[in-house]
Computed example of a mutant assay.
Amino acid sequence: AGSPGPQRRHRTPWTPRAAGEYWIDPNQGCSRDAFKVFCNFTAGGETCLFPEKRFESVRLAAWSKEKPGSWYSTFKRGKKFSYVDVEGSPLRVTQLTFLRLLSAGAHQNFTLTCQHAAGWYHASADSYAWALRFRGANDQELGHNSTTSPVHALYDGCQLRQGQARTVLEVRTFRPEQLPLADVAVADFGEANQKFGFELGPVCFTG
Rank of each mutant, 00 (worst) to 15 (best):
A1E: 06
A1K: 03
S3Y: 14
P4G: 11
P6G: 13
Q7E: 12
Q7N: 11
R11A: 15
T12G: 05
W14A: 13
A19P: 10
A19D: 15
A19E: 11
E21G: 03
W23P: 01
W23Q: 11
I24H: 00
D25Y: 07
P26G: 03
N27C: 10
Q28H: 13
G29K: 06
R32P: 01
R32M: 12
F35S: 06
V37A: 02
C39S: 03
C39I: 01
N40F: 02
F41M: 08
T42C: 08
A43Q: 08
G44C: 05
G45Y: 07
G45E: 08
G45F: 07
T47C: 10
T47F: 06
C48N: 00
C48W: 02
C48M: 00
L49V: 11
E52T: 06
K53L: 09
K53S: 10
F55C: 08
R59D: 12
L60W: 05
A61R: 13
A62I: 04
S64L: 12
S70G: 06
W71P: 00
S73A: 15
F75K: 05
R77Q: 14
R77L: 03
G78D: 03
K80H: 07
F81V: 01
F81C: 02
S82A: 15
S82I: 04
Y83H: 13
V84P: 01
D85N: 11
D85R: 03
V86Y: 02
E87H: 00
E87R: 00
G88M: 07
S89N: 15
L91H: 02
L91P: 05
R92V: 03
V93S: 13
V93A: 12
Q95I: 05
Q95G: 13
Q95F: 09
Q95L: 11
T97S: 12
R100F: 00
R100V: 00
S103L: 03
S103V: 04
S103E: 06
A104H: 15
A104C: 14
Q108W: 07
N109V: 13
T111V: 14
T111R: 15
A117G: 11
A117I: 12
A118D: 09
G119N: 08
W120H: 12
W120S: 03
A123V: 10
S124Q: 13
S127K: 03
S127G: 06
Y128F: 15
A131H: 04
R133K: 12
R135N: 11
G136F: 06
A137Y: 14
A137E: 08
Q140F: 01
Q140V: 05
Q140I: 02
E141V: 14
H144L: 00
S146Y: 06
V151H: 10
H152P: 00
H152L: 12
H152R: 13
L154W: 04
L154C: 08
L154Y: 06
Y155M: 11
C158H: 08
C158T: 01
L160P: 09
R161M: 09
Q162H: 13
Q162M: 11
G163H: 04
R166L: 12
L169S: 06
L169T: 05
L169Y: 05
F174C: 14
F174M: 09
F174W: 10
P176H: 05
E177K: 14
Q178V: 03
L179G: 07
L179W: 07
Q194Y: 10
K195P: 01
F196I: 01
G197L: 08
F198M: 06
E199G: 10
L200N: 07
L200Q: 08
G201Q: 02
P202F: 04
V203D: 09
C204Y: 01
C204G: 00
G207L: 11
